[in-house]
Design a protein around this nucleic acid. Sequence first.
DNA 1: AATGGTCGCAACCGCGAGGGG
DNA 2: ACCCCTCGCGGTTGCGACCAT
Length: 271
Amino acid sequence: MGRPPCCDKEGVKKGPWTPEEDIILVTYIQEHGPGNWRAVPTKTGLSRCSKSCRLRWTNYLRPGIKRGNFTEQEEKMIIHLQDLLGNRWAAIASYLPQRTDNDIKNYWNTHLKKKLKKSQTGNNAECINFEEEKFSASQRIPRGQWERRLQTDIQMAKKALNEALSPQKLSPNFSTSNPTNSNSFSSTKEPGQSFCYASSADNIARLLKGWMKNPIKSSSLSPDATILQDESKPDVGSETMPFSLLEKWLLDEASCPEKVLGCGGDHAQVF
DNA sequence: AATGGTCGCAACCGCGAGGGG
DNA sequence: ACCCCTCGCGGTTGCGACCAT
């Protein structure tokens, strides 16, 4: 009983994607938009299953993805949200629109989990901050209250998102609101990034640069906002608003005198 | 310089939810 | 109401890169 896994089919390629495959996939999505993943392998001729195509797009090729190191802000948000939502990475990712759920999940599993674990041993000053942070998030305010606040925040974020996405309100530098934002499609490579695929990614970047300049709806919309309007993750590309809202929200938390969220100087600046 | 161990990330797998027929 | 299909999510794995010895 039950359907066979789509990837069990013979002749379905697995493993790392090649630049050529990426280009084929990107080109197809450029023409047809994301969605209807079932049709993608047949229409593109890719020997990949639909799932693999979707994953590749959402986790790697999709415009607006920020790669590389997580900022302290992002780290804190993840910790807070993980405490609130648990391992609901997709939900957490919706608050960090430039990051994919896979990225966040990986970062949590490889870095943050370790930090928190270390902090439980109590021998790492930096990690104690995380401990305090986690403690405060879960203890100072009853969970139900946190959840209500989260719901409210989600509503506010949605509203703000609608406003932000209305073309007349988009500033020309909409997509560059974050000066440290290293757009994955910029031609400059970020130092310290993974390199095994860097050159290939650059190839894709050039390709995308080309087609993103194509006037699909280029006027005042940023490429992200343009491309992503019909995408499965509509939040993407509108990073500024929900991000700042959450930031404010976290700031409110930090403003309680008895608790210092980020106790370092850097933290104080950021928060 | 070589080798073994560890880490980090991309990708895969299985399951559940939602929608259409 | 039921079944089937597609999509999305979360957990896990495999492999290449990096580091220590």
